[in-house]
Amino acid sequence: MSIQHFRVALIPFFAAFCLPVFAHPETLVKVKDAEDQLGARVGYIELDLNSGKILESFRPEERFPMMSTFKVLLCGAVLSRVDAGQEQLGRRIHYSQNDLVEYSPVTEKHLTDGMTVRELCSAAITMSDNTAANLLLTTIGGPKELTAFLHNMGDHVTRLDRWEPELNEAIPNDERDTTMPAAMATTLRKLLTGELLTLASRQQLIDWMEADKVAGPLLRSALPAGWFIADKSGAGERGSRGIIAALGPDGKPSRIVVIYTTGSQATMDERNRQIAEIGASLIKHW
């Protein structure tokens, strides 16, 4: 067993022997301040990774656009098919120029040779490549099948209805392509620590998230040296922004954090800054 596999296998073990965790309302004060600064709703939840206990939450059962955070769930569904012998990570998928959609920095470079399922998941999570996500959605049967996968996990809230990039439209009061912070946090925890996926697939999923290259201005910008984070960000229309993450000190994750916002007129930089400040408060009061 590799060191990384050992780390993920012992996530519940280490967490069980940690000192009790206590909620700190100071972080919620910052979440509410972010709402004021952005002029928009902000949803927040913080779960203990081992027990699933909610440590703090704000608007945990209000719907927010998922945006690209759905790509972690998508690759979880792909990995479940791999575990069941219905898919192979090494299978190569070929596609054409007509398949390319807006923001496809990886797939646009491989029109000639195609990409493997493993490479597509890596591109979808680490670079948020939209064509990679659409190609992977095709392998599982489309958005409705991802929703069905989530329902089978016990998540009857999260739903995907459309493809990239239309799913980022974020129309107010439109339930399409949305989740709730509580539902997303619980589902992410199941994917990373539950028995739904094999140990190898859980490790692969967290490795992809740990290698995320496009979430630097968010929670990662607030992390002290030595902290662990595996995350996936999302951005959408109407001032929408979000991030889902597993993080913790001492090089291992111990909490799940989900943050979503929508309806702001603020710039992307300002949305990023507010999420980073929430992260800084979380870490300060850990």
Results as ranks from 00 to 15, higher is better:
97 Q>T: 07
102 E>D: 06
153 M>Q: 06
84 A>K: 15
180 M>H: 14
230 A>Y: 03
263 G>I: 08
163 W>L: 08
69 T>V: 03
137 L>I: 12
96 S>C: 05
160 L>Y: 02
52 G>Y: 14
150 L>V: 14
201 S>T: 11
109 K>L: 13
240 S>Q: 12
272 N>M: 03
167 L>S: 07
87 E>Q: 11
264 S>V: 08
94 H>G: 05
145 E>N: 12
113 D>C: 08
63 R>W: 10
199 L>G: 07
44 Y>E: 02
194 G>N: 13
228 F>E: 08
186 T>Y: 13
45 I>A: 12
209 M>I: 02
197 L>G: 07
83 D>K: 10
138 T>I: 15
224 P>K: 14
183 A>E: 06
196 L>G: 12
46 E>G: 08
149 F>H: 13
178 T>V: 04
195 E>C: 14
258 V>M: 04
50 N>C: 12
253 P>W: 06
267 T>C: 08
96 S>N: 07
126 T>C: 07
138 T>V: 12
119 E>K: 14
161 D>Q: 05
86 Q>T: 15
257 V>A: 10
206 I>N: 05
115 M>H: 03
198 T>K: 10
33 D>E: 08
28 L>T: 08
134 N>F: 03
231 D>H: 08
89 L>K: 04
194 G>D: 08
70 F>W: 06
197 L>H: 08
213 K>H: 04
122 S>W: 07
179 T>A: 03
53 K>Y: 15
155 D>W: 00
280 A>T: 15
213 K>F: 06
94 H>A: 06
269 D>P: 10
247 L>I: 12
262 T>Y: 05
273 R>A: 08
140 I>M: 11
281 S>W: 09
36 D>H: 09
171 I>S: 15
254 S>W: 07
125 I>L: 07
124 A>E: 00
179 T>S: 03
171 I>C: 15
180 M>R: 11
68 S>G: 00
266 A>L: 05
102 E>S: 09
97 Q>E: 08
178 T>H: 02
163 W>H: 04
53 K>V: 15
112 T>P: 14
210 E>R: 10
41 R>M: 15
137 L>V: 10
206 I>D: 07
113 D>E: 04
262 T>K: 04
68 S>I: 02
217 P>R: 10
204 Q>T: 04
250 D>L: 04
74 L>F: 00
29 V>L: 14
176 R>S: 07
196 L>K: 08
260 Y>F: 07
252 K>S: 10
267 T>F: 11
165 P>L: 09
280 A>D: 15
173 N>L: 06
119 E>S: 14
285 H>A: 10
237 E>F: 09
51 S>P: 03
109 K>Q: 15
208 W>D: 07
142 G>T: 06
234 G>H: 01
152 N>C: 13
42 V>W: 07
166 E>S: 13
195 E>R: 10
130 N>Y: 01
92 R>C: 15
97 Q>C: 06
170 A>D: 04
27 T>A: 14
105 P>G: 09
251 G>Y: 07
216 G>R: 08
215 A>E: 15
225 A>P: 11
264 S>A: 09
251 G>P: 11
117 V>H: 03
77 A>W: 05
191 L>N: 03
188 L>Y: 14
40 A>W: 04
133 A>F: 02
26 E>A: 13
263 G>S: 13
217 P>L: 10
285 H>M: 12
163 W>R: 12
252 K>L: 15
183 A>C: 08
246 A>F: 10
282 L>S: 14
257 V>F: 15
240 S>V: 02
69 T>Y: 00
196 L>E: 09
155 D>P: 01
144 K>R: 05
241 R>G: 08
251 G>A: 12
166 E>L: 12
131 T>N: 06
176 R>P: 08
241 R>N: 10
58 F>Y: 11
249 P>G: 08
182 A>V: 11
43 G>M: 00
166 E>A: 12
113 D>M: 04
174 D>I: 05
162 R>K: 10
78 V>E: 05
104 S>G: 12
150 L>C: 14
219 L>W: 13
249 P>Y: 09
160 L>S: 08
55 L>D: 11
218 L>S: 03
192 L>H: 12
210 E>A: 12
57 S>K: 10
263 G>L: 07
150 L>W: 09
210 E>L: 11
206 I>M: 13
254 S>K: 08
247 L>P: 01
43 G>N: 00
171 I>W: 15
97 Q>W: 13
115 M>I: 05
104 S>D: 03
236 G>N: 09
237 E>M: 12
129 D>H: 00
286 W>T: 02
201 S>W: 07
159 R>M: 08
277 E>W: 06
243 I>E: 15
61 E>K: 15
130 N>R: 01
228 F>Q: 15
272 N>K: 03
270 E>K: 04
144 K>A: 06
76 G>N: 01
118 R>F: 12
158 T>S: 10
181 P>K: 01
276 A>Q: 04
118 R>K: 13
136 L>A: 10
148 A>L: 09
257 V>T: 09
80 S>Q: 15
213 K>G: 04
30 K>Y: 04
96 S>D: 10
254 S>P: 07
228 F>G: 13
130 N>I: 01
243 I>W: 09
284 K>P: 06
198 T>P: 10
92 R>Q: 12
286 W>L: 08
234 G>V: 01
212 D>F: 03
186 T>V: 12
172 P>N: 13
233 S>M: 01
150 L>D: 02
262 T>L: 06
157 V>D: 11
37 Q>A: 04
77 A>I: 08
283 I>A: 12
73 L>W: 03
224 P>M: 06
89 L>C: 06
143 P>K: 04
264 S>Q: 06
198 T>D: 09
269 D>K: 09
136 L>S: 02
50 N>R: 11
240 S>H: 04
34 A>H: 11
24 H>D: 12
87 E>A: 15
225 A>F: 05
277 E>I: 15
69 T>H: 10
229 I>A: 14
255 R>C: 09
184 M>Y: 11
47 L>H: 11
59 R>V: 02
52 G>M: 10
